[in-house]
Nucleic acid binder design. Structure first.
Length: 256
DNA sequence: CGTAATACG
């Protein structure tokens, strides 16, 4: 069984202080895709930069304290690509791609579209680039997992206040439509497929107004998988993570 | 409200 987790840690150093390594030791994911590490590897304590039993790779933003993704892996991938090979996205450390032979995993920190849709074009270009890489790989006969913080809730049941957020970043029609488009290429939103029609399953809660206590949240973190992976999905779940973080980890168990 | 450097989510 393969345990694959994705988690927006909102600052890996802050997450470290809240018990990241205890979580890692308890959960023992085989593969862990992290988003919003907000640090360069040189800024991390050795125990965090490379915990016992793990290989680690970092894709960092040029801007200090901003964005950043990482892959923590107990297994040795065939190859790791710290980026998409597209400068405007790799400069923000948004992607880690790793080839594990029977599948390729793409861990992405999809851009926030910003108020007034200021960065919507950038976001849609990133989304398209991820999907294009996925299609390339599928064209080569590969199975693909796309995971990470999509910064988008797909449908009304994926956030507590759909009506009030129709003009807000993360729930714009264009952002929602892209998820629909991704699914139309044959990718499967495996968490939703296992909880059809069920509201209240969120992965992010605002720090404001004790939103998490009241479960006023959004489902922003996903696993999309190609059809050949579907039959191997044993379980998909939202974990609790560490106390005091705004995103929870999403866990996928694959019988591979 | 929180992270990590004064912007971003």
């Amino acid at each position: 069984m393969l345990n694959i987790c994705t988690w927006n840690v909102n600052g890996i150093r802050a997450c470290h202080r809240k018990g990241f390594l205890d979580w890692l030791k308890k959960e023992q994911p085989d593969l862990l895709c992290l988003q919003e590490t907000k640090a360069h590897p040189q800024q991390l304590a050795a125990e965090l930069r490379q915990p016992p039993g793990y290989h680690t790779w970092f894709a960092s933003a040029a801007k200090k304290g901003y964005a950043g993704t990482a892959l923590y892996s107990r297994r040795s991938p065939r190859k790791v690509f710290p980026g998409l090979g597209i400068q405007e996205f790799d400069d923000e450390g948004r992607t880690v791609v790793a080839d594990y032979g029977h599948f390729v995993i793409i861990g992405g920190y999809f851009p926030n579209s910003q108020p007034e849709g200021r960065r919507l074009d950038y976001k849609l270009a990133y989304n398209a680039a991820v999907l294009e890489r996925c299609q390339e790989l599928r064209g080569q006969g590969r199975e693909v997992l796309i995971c990470g913080d999509f910064n988008a809730a797909h449908t009304p049941i994926d956030l507590f206040h759909p009506k009030a957020n129709e003009k807000n970043p993360g729930y714009l029609p264009e952002e929602r439509a892209w998820v629909t488009h991704a699914l139309s290429t044959g990718l499967h939103d495996i968490f939703r497929e296992r909880h059809p029609g069920e509201p209240g399953h969120y992965t992010w809660w605002s720090y404001r107004a004790r939103s998490r206590d009241r479960n006023i949240g959004w489902r922003l973190d996903y696993f999309l998988v190609t059809p050949g992976i579907l039959g191997h999905v044993a379980q998909v779940s939202h974990l609790s993570g560490v106390l005091g973080s705004d995103h929870c980890p999403v866990k996928l168990l694959l019988d591979l």
